[in-house]
Design a protein around this nucleic acid. Structure first.
Lengths: 260, 260
DNA sequence: CCCATTTGTTCGTATAACGCACGCTTTGTG
DNA sequence: CACAAAGCGTGCGTTATACGAACAAATGGG
């Protein structure tokens, strides 16, 4: 805790913030965490991390099996508070579902959270060709997905450049772009064209398409879809692209995404 | 804070618990809350509630418009940690989707959280006849929905009776059962029959069907569907009931619901 | 079986958080 | 438009909450 006892700090509850950091450590990358892992992930003293975890256990958000802690379904009710208050189930999900069936592809709605893409909603279709098991709340990479690039296109160049340099450049596939300049060039093109395509950068053989939903001044939200690379070499089938744009227009009309 | 300085209390961080109570106050029933409303909802001193809300604001979980606070999409990432870690998107959602299309009805997976039904996952279909805009994390009433009755059927009689008396009996529709005895009788029948039906108790003209997914010893999880009351008077169409039971069997096979 | 790691617990100490009070701002009503 | 009610921001004295170190026990892996 900084020695600076300013008004700003006195308005915040640092123990609550530390507890939320414990909750955030359960990021879905592993099925469970031990107390030692929680302390390492949060950078907290072991005793403090333990108090945070036991408080979550006591309130029903964690379960414990021997030394392993994992999230319980109760965390869904926190998300439900958001989804219910904003009318996602009534206004957003039906639009995604209808267009997913029409286009016969999975459709995802996403925003940016720090240096990751975070899915807001998604519609999967039966026997869809591509499905990676993502759900609302899932996080995806920012730099090698069409959703991520389209999100960064919604920010000024200098902001996008800073985010790229801060997060480092992973290499999910052999086809993944590897330099900040290449990625920034694609982001500028996305801003210019109003859509973007990735080809096998996040998953081999899979094309990603994304279009913006919200406009300048609003929190960037984008819409995207994935499909296998066709033999004919067409990366962005026009019907899919136009369908995503129509879907985006309908989502804008709901007004749900105006203040996120 | 009780004066009792036991080990149990020293293992918990009461400031963190108070902060989580602030987060829980955003239950989706209203689009936003003021500081005064948060303090009332949580029973906390106004200054404490304010510190909790400002900590959530600072960490990105709330946004503020004048005096009104509301949840941000970032809360979805907490749910995403659970859904990703448990493989809901890969293992549960496709099963629900497939059966929803086959049966041509919306299908919901639910568990109990205190005195409410909480949806774990759901599949909606295009042009479905019934959709109330619920999503994962949504809470539904416990006593007048088929999901709620099937959940209570998974508990011993005395537990069900206690929950009924503790939560009080609302009256969502004119057809809603009004006494604890009537409701308990239906719960016993659900336990005996292995399924339950409600007719216009939660929503006029709508039949609800539910079957259990998990067995004794596991946390009760149930599966349900809604459809409009048919003219022929058949409340539980055999194909829908059997389809739900098949879906439940497939969900059991995934193993995802074994430890929730 | 040994050793490294993890965990549970106690406890002295300090500071984070409490809650009250005051004054200002906003909102609603007559 | 004025006034009352409600809500909010802030300062501050006090103390209970939480901290983290240390020790011992438990666990897990080689």
């Amino acid at each position: 805790m900084p020695d600076e006892n300013t008004a700003q700090n006195r308005n915040l509850a640092s123990t609550f913030a530390k507890g939320l950091a414990v909750l955030e450590a359960f990021d879905g990358l592993s099925p469970s965490l031990t107390l030692a892992e929680i302390a390492r992930a949060t950078g907290q003293d072991r005793a403090a991390a333990r108090r945070g975890a036991l408080t979550l256990l006591d309130m029903g958000y964690l379960r414990q099996d021997d030394r392993h802690f994992s999230l319980t379904p109760k965390v869904l009710s926190i998300a439900g508070g958001f989804l219910q208050a904003r009318g996602f189930g009534r206004l957003v999900q039906p639009v995604l579902n209808r267009h997913a069936v029409t286009l016969d592809t999975e459709i995802s709605l996403a925003t940016r959270d720090s240096s990751a893409v975070m899915l807001l909603a998604q519609s999967t279709v039966t026997d869809g060709l591509v499905s990676q098991g993502f759900t609302a709340g899932s996080r995806l990479p920012l730099l090698h997905t069409s959703l991520g690039r389209m999100l960064l296109a919604g920010a000024p160049d200098e902001v996008a450049a800073r985010i790229i340099s801060q997060s480092g450049i992973p290499r999910p596939t052999d086809h993944a772009l590897t330099t900040a300049d290449e990625i920034l060039t694609r982001i500028r093109a996305a801003r210019r064209d109003g859509y973007t395509v990735t080809d096998s950068e996040f998953e081999p053989g899979i094309i990603g398409l994304a279009v913006p939903v919200t406009g300048p001044g609003a929190m960037p939200v984008v819409l995207g879809s994935s499909l296998p690379r066709g033999r004919d070499g067409v990366l962005a089938p026009d019907p899919i692209l136009k369908g995503l744009q129509r879907c985006a227009a309908e989502l804008r009309q709901t007004g749900v995404l105006d203040r996120l």
